[in-house]
Design a protein around this nucleic acid. Structure first.
Length: 437
RNA sequence: GUGGCUAUAGCUCAGUUGGCAGAGCAUCUGGUUGUGGUCCAGAGGGUCGUGGGUUCAAAUCCCACUAGCCACCCCA
């Protein structure tokens, strides 16, 4: 590596080719959000450290970048947008029509150790519905996530959303006799169910206070592939019935929206975060080779926790890093070559001023028109046009002087024909633009 | 934050028991004035991640640091 400076650990530079990928993802996120009825917001990137302490506990402080400013304020670069979203909505809760459907694409920072699919900085698409307790809101968020997968040409065989429910997990624990105060210790163990060997799971579960019979039932419950089978391992309590109905309703709604192929029940999904209260889900690549593509769920207590009213909310986040890796590995990325609709070539002494005038005119007409900085042979300029990926070359030569015409050459087919100078812009606008390749 | 592996040209990588820094691709220049994308010729480009140490001599051996990958922790 030349030079003394490297990028800071976990941070990325975006050279034009990486920038093209990022814009491709961000454009898709924004496009899908808008057509699903979400409006965009952006929160301040620096927040009071206490905002994250209140939401996530003191332990969060070591996981984020914080600083003390010259006024002695404890600040943090936002590691996620949800607390800021709650802050912004709480501030205007009285005046916002509900449901509040907002999305954002913040650049967030987390002080974690980097590895594949995880840096210390990333862009995270966030989609949330606030102010609705209905599972319809959960279903609409999940549909939006599925819509994005499809928008990026990821089929159900490439990636899918795995659906679970915190309320069902809580009801399940209660129904097999796990006391409420043990839930906080047990949930992380269930989260590990398919991530550790069976013996390790057993050991962790015993340590969390479960009995052997409970572990066995919960294991079967989690491993169930249908909701009916899962419920069969539980006692028929009201809480179980209510949670089951909610989850069934979400699946039914997604089926009605044609997203059923992308959504699968998976009771191994728990989510680490304590604040989830209802439906939870994660999106993964089909091979499960990568980290989660997205994760989310219902969080009905967060706004109240941050000083607002008790108001229901649900949503998810999706980072740019894992998504970019998956699309690249699946060969689902388009060619990010720069756009060059046409390339203007001066052929002959003294024609450059005319060529430049044409470049300027075509650019004003909205075409991406290129030209060579060097006055060189026609062949060299054609090669430059080819390297730029120009669909069309315009040759400005003697026929302009003789008959007021230029030669328009299709770079893909090699066909060329004279076009009147005055008709050139209109002629090129009528042709397909972009790459000739 | 902890541990393991790794770091040579813009990219992918060779470089033997320590003995003159290399290839392919990419880039640039030329092949003399109107036809490209697969042609020829030439050139530039590296304090071998950074800083120390051992040695007559270090890309090569040793130490520390930095960064990347992997496994933990965590996963908002």
């Amino acid at each position: 590596m030349a030079g003394s400076f490297q990028t800071v650990k976990g941070f990325r530079d975006f050279y034009p080719e990486q920038m093209a990928l990022r814009n491709y993802l961000v454009d898709a996120w924004r496009r899908v959000s808008i057509r699903n009825g979400f409006v965009e917001y952006e929160a301040a990137m620096l927040e009071y450290l206490d905002l994250f302490r209140v939401k996530s506990g003191e332990g969060i402080v070591s996981e984020l970048f914080s600083l003390v400013d010259r006024g002695g304020r404890e600040l943090a670069i936002a590691p996620e947008i949800t607390p800021s979203l709650a802050r912004m909505i709480n501030a205007r809760i009285g005046g916002l029509p509900r449901p509040i459907k907002w999305f954002s694409i913040p650049h967030v920072c987390r002080a974690e150790n980097p590895q594949k699919g995880r840096g210390r900085e990333f862009y995270q698409w966030n989609v949330d519905v606030v102010g609705s307790d209905e599972v319809l809101a959960d279903a609409e968020c999940i549909f939006t996530l599925v819509d994005l997968l499809a928008e990026l040409n990821l089929s159900p065989a490439d990636a899918a959303v795995f659906l679970s429910s915190r309320s069902l997990l809580a009801a399940a624990l209660a129904s097999v006799g796990v006391a409420n105060e043990k839930h906080e210790a047990v949930l992380p163990v269930l989260d590990k169910r398919d991530k550790v060997p069976p013996e390790a799971f057993e050991e962790m579960a015993l340590k969390a206070g479960l009995e052997a019979a409970q572990i066995d039932r919960l294991r079967r419950f989690q491993d169930s592939t249908t909701l009916a089978e899962a419920i069969g391992y539980l006692e028929p309590t009201d809480a179980v019935a209510t949670a089951r109905a909610a989850l069934e309703e979400v699946l039914k709604l997604l089926g009605a929206m044609g997203a059923g192929d992308y959504v699968k029940l998976d009771l191994h999904v728990v989510r680490g975060l304590a604040y989830y209260t209802g439906v939870v889900y994660e999106a993964f690549d089909s091979g499960r080779a990568l980290r989660a593509l997205a994760g989310g769920g219902r969080y009905d207590n967060l706004l109240e926790l941050l000083g607002g009213p008790k108001i229901g909310a649900t949503g998810f986040g999706m980072g740019d890093i894992v998504l970019g890796i998956l699309l690249a590995e699946k060969g689902k990325l388009p060619d990010f070559a720069e756009r060059c609709d046409c390339f203007i070539i001066d052929a002959g002494e003294g024609m450059f001023d005319d060529a430049l005038a044409i470049v300027a005119e075509l650019r004003r007409a909205g075409l991406a028109a290129g030209f060579s900085y060097k006055r060189q042979a026609l062949g060299k300029q054609l090669r430059a046009a080819g390297q730029k990926g120009a669909a069309i070359a315009v040759i400005v030569g003697q026929e302009l002087r003789d008959r007021g015409e230029v030669v328009v050459k299709d770079m893909a087919t090699g066909e060329q024909a004279p076009v009147a100078r005055a008709e050139l812009a209109r002629e090129l606008q009528s042709r397909p633009r972009g790459l000739a390749r």
